[in-house]
């Protein structure tokens, strides 16, 4: 399929993957180049949080702009998925779709709020405790809401697989991504409750959850070939 024939929802699915992944990668590279964070594999070593890549300029400009833009794309993705699933015309599910999409939208707004406070204005951290707490709370709520909504949506997509004509392999990919998110979230919450912590724990989970949720957004690309923005002819 050529780029020219790509539907708008497909472009949204692509953007929801590439914008955050490229943004985080670029801001991390700039932060490392500036000598503010070590060069490592954060997925394994947990050596730098995503937040840490958005403190020093110019990396902070990129993280702020890229993630705020990503959040809008996430909102559009949820709007698309709602309209897509509503096309099965099961009236009893409409309220459910609306609720999940609203929760995911609020989560996306929270990540914008979380990102705009980042920058060198947060240094030294002891003088800006409120803003740091605000950032940590809003970012945490985003990850929680986003992952839970994706997990719930996977369950519903499986139920509607036949009506929606979703390929079995596409559902399996979504289920794997949703299960991994569930696993990471459960372990993180469990460890927090029992008070167990290892070095780089937050960074480790943050990078994995961000990547898994981006991959989940991308997975809709294969489902949305026949889901397009179009101008319907009005009846006379």
């Amino acid at each position: 399929m050529s780029n020219l024939s790509m539907t708008l929802p497909q472009r949204i699915a692509l953007a929801a993957f590439f914008i955050p992944v490229v943004t985080i990668g670029l801001s991390y590279a700039l932060t490392v180049a500036g000598g503010h964070e070590p060069l490592c594999i954060p997925y394994i070593e947990g050596c730098a949080t995503i937040t840490a890549t958005g403190i020093y300029y110019p990396a902070a400009y990129i993280l702020r702009a890229g993630i705020a833009m990503s959040a809008v794309v996430f909102i559009l993705w949820w709007y698309c998925v709602r309209l897509w699933l509503e096309s099965v015309r099961q009236a009893e599910l409409v309220a459910w779709f609306h609720t999940v999409v609203w929760v995911a939208t609020i989560g996306s707004v929270l990540i914008i709020a979380s990102m705009v406070v980042l920058g060198e204005n947060l240094l030294p951290s002891r003088d800006h405790r409120f803003l740091w707490r605000f950032h940590a709370t809003t970012a945490g709520l985003f990850f929680l809401a986003n992952s839970i909504c994706q997990i719930m949506m996977t369950v519903r997509m499986r139920q509607l697989r036949r009506q929606m004509n979703i390929a079995f392999s596409h559902i399996v990919v979504k289920e794997v991504l949703a299960l991994l998110q569930l696993l990471f979230l459960t372990v993180l919450i469990g460890m927090t409750i029992v008070g167990y912590e290892f070095e780089g724990m937050v960074a480790f989970f943050e990078w994995w959850l961000a990547t898994l949720s981006s991959l989940f957004y991308l997975s809709a690309w294969w489902d949305w070939r026949d889901f397009r923005l179009t101008r319907l002819e009005q009846s006379a």
Partner: peptide, 28 residues
């Protein structure tokens, strides 16, 4: 400053989609 940066960056993303809509509307 926080409100302005967050709101306007988000608005810019919607402007991009607005132009996609305009294109679809005028395509024919």
């Amino acid at each position: 400053g926080f409100i302005f940066r967050g709101g306007m960056i988000a608005a810019c993303a919607f402007f991009v989609v607005w132009w996609v809509n305009m294109r679809v509307w005028l395509t024919r």
